[in-house]
Design a protein around this nucleic acid. Structure first.
Lengths: 342, 342
DNA sequence: TTGAAAGCGCTAACAT
DNA sequence: ATGTTAGCGCTTTCAA
């Protein structure tokens, strides 16, 4: 029964028409050029033979692969699945698919992956791996491949469209929340400063403190080298070992906040009694932590949706005006924040 | 500067040789057919022109797309990212890529997705969506597309290779652990019985109870319709409302176990003092729960690796003997299990 | 060892 | 409205 691979020619022969007629029928945009009667016969023959268009040949001929490349650091990082889902749902709706590559943040993997995607003639790329100075982005510009940056951006003067969370605002929400509870001495466990998220959240922290009429003491800021529980723990321990006292800590993401929990445990401090903690991202299950984590919720899925839309637009019209979407975050107040001990 | 799309012809012209010679150089398998000297000249010209092979044309000609389709229910379910990572790492090592589709377990989405993947001429498929009777699987067999089932299987008499966790053994570990702690009356919150995981874990529970010399009381088994926190909660509440008392509950997965936590809270019961609970999967962060969840760890990443390997083997040699890999689970004992209250 | 020619399956002028 | 023709970029016989 393995008639497996019926082609347009087989269908044409079966109906007794020319292959191009079949092509016209199979193609929504040209179907109107053909008699309804013949179209029906073709469609039926196609079904009968189990015909399915060879997307490879189609793409080769039309120079559109209906494929976009998505480059992320690591799919096991829980922020990415919802983003990817948003991307894939949006692409699938218009017959596009995504091919995904994990780079683990290694710039050399980056380059390899990019070449591979270019070889596959992706129509565009969504990059979640952008560093503030990024060779891959430059390469894409040179190759004139439509690109959208997601989650992170490169330098602010970029010509590349981006869809990111409003990190400055997000951190602002945590700081207002804490000052509202009465906190005055607030520490910050910052993320990597070579990533836009780490930098923006740091900036946002400084700005928010200033806006609240507080001074952000440099001695109360510790920078994590990577976003990890370990680094969060290390950072908070460093702060706790310092001379300055504080009653709350704003972590640059949930993983760092988790590390802060650990640090408190090892010092026999209780959260939120002795110390309030906030995270960023609202990862799955942080509502189940002990205590449940107060954190900033990001529109991950929506971020993916918007990025895909912007990219599709750019693919359709390369001249399209660049957009920089900044999605609105929201604060989710849970048990890890409370009034400071007087 | 947009020389964007150099072809094999451009390179040939630049060097003054025939396109087929360039092809031979670019292809590892045929490089030996050409003089080292010319090969070098070609390679240099190729680099100079920024040439990269058009994978589409290559695939069309060779009838190998070096692409495999991966069909999963939902990438935001935390068991899948590590599986996908295992698949992608393994495929990437041999120049293959994965295209992923989410079906949300909807059989009609299934069919659409499959056609789309066949149209893209995937060399093979990895299916994580198999129901016990599965039309997609049948279709693949008919189309003679290599397939591997992962995580779940269809009926046991399948002709399709599979890579799954040993669920019977996994549940056995939890039951032994509980009986070892002194539990005698153990309940089971079972998963959906139309999925192999739900069924196997249920069977495993019955077998393990029997092996321990205990009888599995039907009144102490509640079946969840889907794997969700809600259903877990509902199921345990049903059991708690029954007449039979019990001191421990074996949930068919972590999500269900989470629901059990909720159920206990609403009845003001304490875990593990009043009730021990076990999960299945060892999802991220269940070690941070209150109490940390005792659960069965599955080799997710390895599952992906093995599935990809089996599939690649089948692609290379369609006659390859069918294998059914059954990966070894392990028990992770944490705080949600303890001795029963006397 | 290299070149010539044909064709993978499809679509897009152009002709009828 | 349909057929003819050519070719997307590559590989692979076959010949030289």
């Amino acid at each position: 029964m393995a008639r497996s691979k019926a082609t347009i020619n087989d269908v044409a022969k079966a109906v007794g028409v020319h292959p191009s007629t079949v092509s016209r029928v199979m193609n929504p945009g040209t179907r109107h050029m053909v008699t309804a009667e013949i179209a029906k016969k073709v469609t039926e023959a196609a079904r009968g033979l189990g015909y399915h268009r060879n997307a490879l040949a189609h793409s080769l001929r039309t120079r559109r692969s209906s494929t976009v490349g998505v480059v992320i650091p690591d799919i096991t990082n829980p922020v990415f699945p919802p983003i990817l889902r948003g991307i894939e749902d949006t692409l699938a709706a218009v017959g596009y698919i995504a091919i995904i590559a994990n780079t683990d943040g290694a710039p050399d993997r980056d380059a390899v992956v990019l070449e591979h995607m270019l070889a596959r003639r992706v129509d565009g790329l969504i990059l979640a791996t952008a560093r503030r100075k990024d060779a891959v982005v430059d390469r894409c510009i040179a190759e004139e491949v439509p690109v959208v940056l997601i989650n992170r951006t490169t330098g602010k003067d970029s010509v590349v469209p981006s869809v990111v969370n409003d990190d400055v605002r997000g951190i602002g929400l945590t700081v207002s929340h804490l000052t509202g509870l009465g906190h005055r001495r607030i520490a910050h466990v910052a993320g990597p400063q070579d990533l836009s998220t780490g930098l923006e959240r740091h900036r946002g922290f400084l700005a928010a403190m200033k806006a609240a009429g507080l001074k952000a003491d440099p001695a109360l800021i510790a920078v994590a080298g990577v976003y990890s529980e370990r680094e969060g723990q290390r950072a908070l321990l460093t702060l706790l070992d310092g001379k300055k006292r504080f009653t709350a800590v704003v972590a640059a993401n949930d993983l760092l906040a988790l590390g802060c929990y650990e640090a408190l445990v090892s010092r026999e401090l209780s959260c939120p009694r002795d110390m309030s903690i906030t995270g960023f991202n609202d990862m799955p299950f942080v509502d189940k932590l002990n205590p449940p984590l107060t954190t900033v919720r990001i529109q991950h899925y929506e971020m993916g949706v918007q990025a895909a839309k912007v990219l599709l637009e750019r693919i359709t019209d390369p001249q399209a005006r660049r957009v920089d979407l900044r999605l609105e975050p929201s604060l989710v107040v849970r048990g890890s924040t409370g009034r400071p001990a007087s």
